[in-house]
Design a binder for these strands. Sequence first.
DNA 1: TAACCGTGGGG
DNA 2: TCCCCAAGGTT
Length: 301
Amino acid sequence: MTATPSTPEAGPAELHGPVLAWFEQNARDLPWRRPDAGAWGVMVSEFMLQQTPVSRVLPVYEQWLARWPRPADLAAEAPGEAVRAWGRLGYPRRALRLHGAAVAITERHGGDVPSDHAQLLALPGIGEYTAAAVASFAYGQRHAVLDTNVRRVFARSVTGVQYPPNATTAAERKLARALLPDDEPTAARWAAASMELGALVCTARNEDCSRCPIARRCAWRLAGKPAHDGPARRGQTYAGTDRQVRGRLLAVLREATAPVEQAALDAVWHEPVQRARALDGLVADGLVEPLEGGRYRLPEG
DNA sequence: TAACCGTGGGG
DNA sequence: TCCCCAAGGTT
């Protein structure tokens, strides 16, 4: 290291103002952001938004909250009803976990979504991101909320690379904490604002720097937007995998009102070994309940 | 840690 | 068409 050049690199404080002001003007009016959403609404939205786009979540979210306005309402249902109501959002284990979280909230927390980060983290289906998101968005707490959007915004604007690492690193957590505004309400708005910037402007592909409030200080843009060099980000295969078979099997069970015969499930996939493996996996995951005589249904207990 | 877990839309 | 990506979590 020779003489440290003074870089145009933004300090935390220089990012907060522009991003918060931008959010003020550009935040989407999403139902889980309305005051009446409550912590349960925020939590439901976070489960649904794990790996699923907002546009597809919206209608299911509305139906879900209308049917189960409180955790205890969902907890009183069979888990299979949650799986059915989940529809085609994908990753149906999330529905099961959301149901399990509702049961735990009803049993352990008097029916109220806990505000404590550690207690949130202890619920099924809630990991590092979701715990921070619920604590921040629902309860206004100060947490580093590191989702794929925020990680990309930080990777570009601060670190100067196109994409963040494949898995969240300690360096990213440290950076996120360093960038967090000191006071609680501002930190909570910052979390939502930086996430929204990544979702609307600093997108994975076709980012629109002309609309970015921190473009002038963005390390990646100032460096000429160098292309991602690291290892190729693993693509997810789907066609021909167990996941596809599981999806087909579950779709049949979701749409059925009565237990389904083995033959109806056999019809969804030609290859018997893979088909059986997929069905066994669904049963092992608790997404499917086997009955006597080779019949199956969504779980009732 | 890396693989697994669905589904659909946009470029 | 095909590929990439989408507010992750769990094992």
